[in-house]
């Protein structure tokens, strides 16, 4: 019996040490995003970093949940938007570039609202560029600049940096939120734990 317990202890130790060693160093953070993708007071105690995909239906739903949460805790939360366009969504990367082009003109959040509100419309077209320009015109953006920014490919690196950050943080699904360092995946987890995490992180 003693032998068995000793062997069980050895096997258990080997397993635990292997897992912990493999997990070591898998977490890295690079939180530098353009200021126009941050909403809320910079001194807010709770930084909610959202990894999202404009073509993902759950992300569109989660946006409403997040908005309600930030309204309820005004002043305590700063939301940081990060792109994580999934490969399975044909127009996600282009939509991210369109949002960046709007962001360069100071209307990132309005444009992301439009993208989510009209997600079905643009995601089902053969080529959404025309619709993206229409949304930009609707917001009164400088259309020439918007179109040239969108077509220039200048946002590819910006979007890719977010994707790499997501991968470094082992984000696998959208939307994924980080309440400071607490992770929440999907709209239902956001609804279930969002409130509690804001309170925990803000110390209220």
């Amino acid at each position: 019996m003693k032998n068995r317990l000793f062997i069980a202890f050895i096997i258990g130790t080997v397993l635990i040490v292997t897992v912990l060693a493999a997990k070591q160093g898998r977490w890295s953070e690079t939180w530098k995003v353009p200021a126009y993708r941050q909403k809320g007071p910079a001194s807010a105690p709770v930084v909610i970093t959202e990894f999202s995909d404009f073509q993902c239906p759950i992300c569109a739903r989660a946006r409403t949940t997040l908005e309600e949460l930030t309204k309820r805790h005004e002043g305590k939360i700063v939301v940081v938007f990060r792109h994580y366009p999934l490969k399975s969504h044909r127009w996600s990367r282009l939509a991210a570039s369109a949002a960046e082009s709007a962001g360069a003109q100071g209307r990132f959040w309005d444009y992301q609202n439009l993208l989510f509100d009209r997600q079905k419309e643009w995601s089902e077209t053969q080529d959404p560029r025309e619709l993206f320009s229409q949304y930009a015109a609707y917001l009164g953006l400088d259309l020439k600049r918007f179109q040239s920014d969108l077509e220039s490919g200048r946002w590819d690196k910006t979007v890719q940096r977010d994707v790499e950050a997501a991968q470094a943080l082992q984000v696998k699904a959208t939307p994924t939120f980080f309440f400071n360092k607490r992770r929440v995946v999907g709209d239902s987890q956001l609804k279930a734990f969002g409130e509690q995490f804001v309170e925990l992180e803000s110390g209220s």
């Binding site: 292997t18 897992v19 997990k23 082992q170 696998k172 699904a173 995946v185 987890q189």
Partner: peptide, 27 residues
Amino acid sequence: FTKLMLPPEELAMAMEAYRLIPLSMAV
């Protein structure tokens, strides 16, 4: 081992899809 290398919230999300356990228990 593969699951342990992922954040538990990711696995919890996969579990949610089965609608068998409450969300508070999933994580």
